[in-house]
Simulated assay, not measured.
Amino acid sequence: MNFLRRFMYGRYGVDQLSIALLILGVLLSFISTATNIYFINLLSIVIIALTYFRILSRNTYKRAAENLKFLNFWNPIKDKTWLPLKKQFTTFTKGAKDKNHKYFLCPSCRQTLRVPKGQGKITVTCPKCKNQFSKRS
């Protein structure tokens, strides 16, 4: 174990870009296995080798700058795709715990709204964007 610690001392290690490259390399490897396209297999090997190069690199400033550029590119994409799914999941789990209220997402701004159960069909007004929509509570 001490050998591994001494070997990794001063090296960059794993970051978000390394994880993304490793996932991409493994996916391309599966695709090349399924399709028998040599170029995709070669590309997956190069990407996985680049991942290990980044992990074992001693030039930490350059690797951190690469990771920062990747995060500046990736975070807006992640926020547009993952955040609405995450919000729907938390709305679902809140509704499972609360027996007296029903939770909805505003169709325009995706704000979580809580209304009392058993009121029938009601018009809900979002306090954030003032959008009105009808739902059954």
Rank of each mutant, 00 (worst) to 15 (best):
L17T: 00
K80L: 09
F70D: 04
Y38V: 10
W82P: 00
N41L: 12
N59K: 15
M8H: 06
T33E: 14
V26F: 12
K69N: 12
N41Q: 09
I31R: 03
S57M: 04
I19R: 12
F39S: 11
F7R: 02
L43Y: 02
F70E: 07
L22R: 08
G25H: 03
L43C: 03
L71P: 00
I40W: 11
I77P: 02
T81F: 10
L24W: 09
T35G: 10
A20I: 11
R58N: 04
L68C: 13
I23S: 12
A65L: 11
R5G: 11
R63L: 01
K62S: 14
Y9V: 01
G25Y: 00
L27F: 15
T81H: 03
L83A: 12
Y61L: 15
A49N: 02
L17P: 01
I31G: 02
F7E: 10
I45H: 00
A34I: 06
S18H: 01
V26G: 03
L56A: 10
L24P: 09
I31C: 06
G13V: 01
I48W: 00
R58P: 07
L71W: 04
I40S: 15
F70L: 08
L71M: 14
F70K: 07
T33W: 12
F39H: 08
L21Y: 07
F7A: 08
T60G: 12
N72I: 10
A34P: 07
L27H: 04
I37K: 11
S44P: 04
L17M: 10
I37A: 10
L24Q: 15
A65T: 11
I48Y: 00
L83N: 06
L28N: 11
Y61A: 15
L22S: 12
S57V: 07
K80G: 11
I47V: 15
I23P: 08
N75K: 13
I55N: 05
R54A: 07
N72C: 06
I48R: 05
F70G: 01
K62W: 14
F30V: 14
Y61S: 15
E66Q: 08
F30T: 15
R11N: 00
L83Q: 13
L56Q: 02
Y38S: 11
N75D: 10
L83G: 00
F70V: 02
V46A: 13
T60Y: 08
G13H: 12
F70H: 07
R63G: 03
W82V: 15
V14Y: 09
Y9G: 01
F7H: 13
G25W: 00
T81R: 05
R5Q: 10
N75C: 01
Q16M: 14
R11D: 00
N59Q: 06
A65I: 09
T60K: 15
S57G: 14
A64Q: 11
N36Q: 06
